[in-house]
């Protein structure tokens, strides 16, 4: 450090130094960082237990310095339920992609939310199956080209993209739902705030907390990281609007 200067921002200690395998510009890394900043700031490393999905973030446990379990594809919500019910004073999160949470694991997601399981979903919605090479996801936009919708997603045969944040906010025992993104520094800061709020609500035992990240996939979308930010603004946010869908009543907080 230069003389006369002070340190004001550095990588959180809870994010391990191993180089992340994610593609350049991928928000998975950004969310990992934000998540670990929250764990460090709240000083909850000893109490935090995560569940990884199947998908690009299958190796999340290589980077997050907390106890973690790797779930079968789609079953992270059931695994997180098992952990949280056994250890109710811990802070438990499931970290899932759109294939995991909104396709193969839809039943587990919906029922964990319906029971109001007191853990936090971190849902990375990038509208594509990144790890397997860019196939259509349940959240792929209408007309969006993927390797399994080479002429664009057709709603007549593939339906419309699933709006998970909107759906889970309908459940009575879901306490907090927010859709965020990391396309700008301001939005990335909001993502971190949302994760922190979710963990705080979880510690208060208010019910399920659900953070959907409108994410990118430069490799799968076949564009540069910068272009992926434009796609988000022009196509994703109009269909998947950012914002708070549900929050605990003020008197409860």
């Amino acid at each position: 450090m230069k003389k006369g200067y002070e340190l004001i921002y550095k990588r959180p200690k809870t994010l391990l130094s191993k180089r992340m395998h994610y593609c350049p510009g991928c928000f998975h890394s950004t969310v990992h960082k934000m998540l670990m900043e929250v764990v460090e700031e709240m000083d909850i490393q000893e109490k935090t237990i995560g569940v990884c999905p199947v998908g690009c973030s299958v190796f999340a446990y290589d980077y997050l310095d907390v106890d973690m379990q790797e779930a079968a594809h789609g079953r992270a919500a059931a695994v997180a339920t098992g952990i949280k019910r056994m250890l109710p004073d811990r802070i438990v999160f499931s970290y899932q992609g759109d294939g995991d949470l909104a396709a193969i694991g839809t039943a587990e997601t919906i029922h964990a939310c319906n029971r109001g399981e007191n853990f936090t979903f971190i849902f990375i919605n990038n509208g594509i199956y990144g790890m397997t090479g860019g196939q259509m996801a349940p959240t792929t936009l209408e007309g969006q080209k993927t390797t399994t919708s080479p002429y664009g997603r057709k709603p007549d045969t593939a339906g419309m993209p699933i709006k998970m944040a909107e759906i889970v906010s309908l459940f009575e025992r879901v306490a907090y739902v927010e859709r965020v993104s990391c396309n700008t520094p301001a939005n990335a800061r909001k993502t971190k705030r949302a994760i922190r709020k979710a963990f705080e609500f979880q510690m208060q035992g208010l019910g399920t907390t659900f953070i959907e990240v409108a994410s990118n996939c430069p490799s799968g979308w076949k564009c540069t990281p910068e272009e992926s930010l434009n796609w988000l603004k022009e196509h994703v946010f109009p269909y998947f609007p950012l914002g708070v869908f549900k929050e605990p009543a003020k008197e409860k907080v």
Partner: peptide, 21 residues
Amino acid sequence: IACQNCAVICPDAAITVYKKV
């Protein structure tokens, strides 16, 4: 200007920011 925008947006947590006292 030590605004930290670069560090916050950096997906890989590669950036450390210092501010003049």
